[in-house]
Design a protein around this nucleic acid. Structure first.
Lengths: 231, 231
DNA sequence: ACCTGAACACCGTTCAAGT
DNA sequence: ACCTGAACACCGTTCAAGT
């Protein structure tokens, strides 16, 4: 009889990632992952809270991989904020090309992978360091959207996943947030204050959408006139 | 006994859309759709080629709905290309807000909904009419990406859906394309010619990604200096 | 032609049982 | 504690049978 390596959350997620890489997301079943580990499907439940939990773990793993890629590409932090964000987007993109299923996975998660808060806080910090005020930075976050994750989409729309949006969360642990994602917290505070009484309007998605749209259209107009980024 | 309305592809798709609206994409099963129609699951196969075919039909239906929204919003074609594209993006967006599952569905289809070719041809035509040459227009198509569909993502990455990319299709029915999507055909021809010997490089996705990225970063830099679109 | 019942090969997950 | 077998409630789809 062969001494089998012990099962673990890490081992389950690693095998799941490899299976997705080789056969696509749709081939990811509990039974299939278990099979690849030489184990019964039910054994997975001791290391992962069900299928949805496994997918959440996979999403977090991808975010971590992006962070590694960003850090690995260069030791020092780039001085120019645009260069830094550019590096981040391109690094993220190589990760997404490695895992073509990742954008689809990330965009359908009902809950945001925990590591992503920190990631976005870093993106925001880069903008603020570059001299963007919170308002412009806020729009910048929407505009770059999931470009900082290496693909183009409004990353998380829980409604799309079939779940209801949880609007309370943001306020709920506001203080806990301040410690771990200081820039995001400050931005939200600043934007809510600027919105005045209309607290719900602090993140007017329609307006963000139009901002991004105009950014692109204006850029294309400049390219048309031959003064855009290297064509 | 009740005289039952005859089943039809249209009726199946309509009920499927309503079911997705009310319960999300994950609730869409052949058995559930059939149940909503008061019929057995197997009956659907006479009007729709399986589950995947039903989802394809749903995707086409959404594209058609976008076209209707674009046309309904205004009788005449807007004179300014930017205003026209802006109208298109915002119209598409209201459709996506109506069907939150649509972006996720569209982005995971293995084959492109047929109506979309025409739609994109119209977008391209608008750019060309506006004075963008094919090269800039090509980049514009990538930059606006799925914004013209009301959400932000590189729309179709068949690889993400678990299927292999079909690189032959584009050349295969090139001549048939010329009739139905003249602008797209002309653009492809122009870009392939410009790429010279490196025929594979006519659509260098990496370069398109960077172009869009720089468009956004440059726009944000302008906003930082206070000269961007209305902040 | 259109619809159906039974059947097949899969799912995710629960639960009581093993070690 | 960790893993398992059997079972349950679901899937998509095939196929022979009905009308």
């Amino acid at each position: 009889m062969v001494t089998r390596e012990l099962l673990s959350r890490e081992r389950v997620l690693r095998v799941a990632r490899d299976l997705a890489d080789s056969s696509g997301l749709s081939a990811l079943s509990m039974r299939r992952v278990a099979g690849a580990l030489g184990v019964e499907a039910m054994s997975l439940y001791h290391h992962v809270p069900g299928k949805e939990g496994l997918l959440d773990g996979l999403a977090e793993q991808v975010v971590a991989e992006v962070q590694q890629e960003v850090a690995g590409g260069q030791g020092d932090r780039l001085e120019d904020w645009r260069a830094e964000l550019r590096h981040r987007c391109l690094s993220a993109r190589t990760v997404m090309l490695r895992h073509p299923w990742a954008p689809g996975l990330l965009s359908t998660r009902a809950t945001i992978p925990s590591g992503l808060w920190q990631y976005y806080d870093e993106v925001l910090a880069t903008m603020v360091r570059g001299g963007l005020n919170y308002h412009v930075a806020h729009r910048g976050m929407h505009a770059l959207g999931s470009m900082v994750l290496g693909f183009v989409q409004e990353v998380f729309s829980p409604a799309a996943a079939g779940g209801a949006a949880d609007t309370d969360t943001a306020e709920q642990d506001f203080e806990a947030m301040a410690a771990t994602v200081p820039h995001l917290t400050a931005m939200v505070a600043s934007e809510v204050h600027a919105a005045g009484d209309d607290a719900l309007g602090w993140c007017d998605t329609d307006r963000e959408f139009e901002f991004t749209l105009d950014l692109l259209l204006d850029g294309l107009e400049r390219a048309r006139r031959g003064s855009g980024p290297g064509v």
